[in-house]
């Protein structure tokens, strides 16, 4: 039986490895793509290039299926942001399992904060 700390540690490590692998694949794909519609000078100037504005999870996954390098990088970044969030979810489950209600509540508040940051506020910004 794996201890809770080992599970958290594994979650964090796998998140970083998966994410950097996805970003590396993305960079290799972009280098091999004949043209991605932007010039190098635009790439160096982030304002003219392609930022994350309006990019969502569904669009990113669609792009990954079509082997778009940029989408692989975005997916890598999503994995990176999701790693600590998964860590909070795992903790809620662990505290529930142990019947530590004080920490079930505390960890749930942290989770609600994260949901506000990820789902509620971006929704308001988009309007």
């Amino acid at each position: 039986m794996m201890e809770f700390e080992d599970l958290l540690s594994l979650n964090l490590r796998l998140g970083v490895i998966l994410s950097s692998t996805l970003m590396l694949i993305g960079l290799i794909l972009i280098s091999s793509e004949s043209g991605i519609g932007i010039t190098t000078s635009q790439l160096i100037n982030p304002v003219a290039g392609s930022g994350s504005h309006g990019v969502g999870i569904a669009q990113t996954l669609g792009g990954v299926l079509q082997l778009h390098g940029i989408s692989f990088i975005f997916l890598g970044i999503i994995v990176l942001i999701a790693t600590p969030i998964l860590r909070v979810l795992l903790s809620i489950m662990s505290f529930l399992h142990r019947g530590n209600w004080t920490y079930v509540i505390i960890t749930s508040i942290v989770f609600v904060n994260l949901v506000v940051a990820i789902a509620v506020i971006p929704g308001l910004i988009a309007k």
Partner: peptide, 10 residues
């Protein structure tokens, strides 16, 4: 920051 567009993949 992502939703504001400040995350530049490249």
């Amino acid at each position: 920051y992502w939703s504001l567009g400040y995350v530049q993949p490249l």
